[in-house]
Nucleic acid binder design. Sequence first.
DNA 1: CGTCGAATTGATGTCATTCAACTACAGTGG
DNA 2: CCACTGTAGTTGAATGACATCAATTCGACG
Lengths: 200, 200
Amino acid sequence: MRQNLKNVDAGQLQLVNILTQIVAIPEGELVVALKKFKRATFRKGEYILSEGQVCKNLYFVNSGLARSYLLQDSKEYIRQFAAENDFLVDLGSFLSQTKSSFYLQAIEDTDTLQISFEDLNCLFNSSFYFMKLGKLIADRSTINLIKRSVSLVKDDAKHRYLYFIKERPSLTQRVPQFMIASYLGITPESLSRIRKEISG
Amino acid sequence: MRQNLKNVDAGQLQLVNILTQIVAIPEGELVVALKKFKRATFRKGEYILSEGQVCKNLYFVNSGLARSYLLQDSKEYIRQFAAENDFLVDLGSFLSQTKSSFYLQAIEDTDTLQISFEDLNCLFNSSFYFMKLGKLIADRSTINLIKRSVSLVKDDAKHRYLYFIKERPSLTQRVPQFMIASYLGITPESLSRIRKEISG
DNA sequence: CGTCGAATTGATGTCATTCAACTACAGTGG
DNA sequence: CCACTGTAGTTGAATGACATCAATTCGACG
C-alpha cells in the first residue's frame, strides 16, 4: 500500500503544512514522521509538564493555548505562549533530558501532537530533510529570542506592550492580563496603568 | 595526495577542535570545509560590520574579542561579546541576507576565520554532519538566549552582574566596565555602584 | 607631564513595584 | 434566581531600583 498524505487527519495536516512551509520534504518521509506524533489533549489549567520533571516530549499545538513559565520565590515568570501552529517544549530539559525548571500549562483546552525525544532524534538522524528542518526552526527561534532580549534592555514596559499587541493581537484577547504582564516582565498593576494611559 | 588535518594551521585546528567537540565529523569533510574559511583580522576598534550593511560572513574568533551591539537614539545596546572560540555574526542579517541592525566591532585586536553565507550554506546542504552541527549550535544558542531573556525579567541588575562575572570571568577583566553595563542593560553609573556594594 | 576617556560619587528624577483597598464579574451552591 | 466566593482588574499612596545630570577622580598613553 502506497504511503501518502490522503489519509492523515486535520491535525496532522496542519503540522505538515507548517513544516513544509519551512522546508520541502518528500511525502514519503512526512508520512513516516507523522506516525511518531501522537495526539495529546489538555484541559484548561492542566499541567503538561511540571518543574523537576524531565521534558520527554515536544508538542505541536493544533488548537488552544498554553504557556511555559518559571516559578521563583512564588512568583511566576512567563517565557512563552504557544497557540495554534506553535511548538511547545522546555528546550533545555528536552535536549539534555534533564530536570525541567519550567512549567508547561494549558491556558485553554489544548489539542496537540506530541513526539518523544527519542522519536524526534531518530527523525533528525535518519533524514537530512528533518535535520535541516530542525536547524531552520532553531535558527528562527534564536532570531526571535535575540529580538526579545534586546527589547528587554532597550524598551520600556509601554513599548514592550505595544510591540506585543502588534505582534500577537489574538493573544491580547485570549490571555488574561496578568499573564501578559508576567511575559512582559512587569506587574499586573503596571500593565493596567499602561493600558489606561494608552487608551486615554 | 591524501586529505588530512596534518597541514592545517593553529587557527584552523582550533576551529576543528570546537566543531568536533560538538559533533563527530569525518576528517575528509573537515578538510573540505576548512578550505572555505578564510583568515580575517581586525584591529582594536575596527568595525567588522556596520548597521545597514548585509552580514555576508560568519566569524569564528581565534583570538581577541569583539562585540555586537545596536545603536538607537545614540545609545549603545550590547547584545553579545565574542571571545576565543566564539562565533560572531548578526544572525538575522546573515540568514536572510538583509540589512543589519547591529554593529560588529573588535574590542581587542581580533583574529578570526570567516566563511561566507554562500559557502556555509553549501557546507550545510552538502553534508549531513554539518547540517547537524548547525542545528546543535543553533539549539545551544537558543538555550542560552532563553536563559538570558528569563534573567532579564527575573533578576535585578546586581544578580545579573554576579551571574556575568561567574559565567564569563575572563571577560570581566578584558571588557571595559561601561560595555559590561550596556550588556547587562544598565548604566555605567549603576554598575559602578553595584560593584562598590559588592566589594564593600 | 598633560590629556582624554573611563570610572566614581553625589543629588535628584522617573518608572515600575509594593501594599492595600476597592470594583467587576464568573462560577457555585442554596 | 440570588447570595456567596474567589479571582482578575483597577486605582491610590508610599517605596524602591535604576536613570539622569553634574562634578570629580583615576589611569592609560602619547
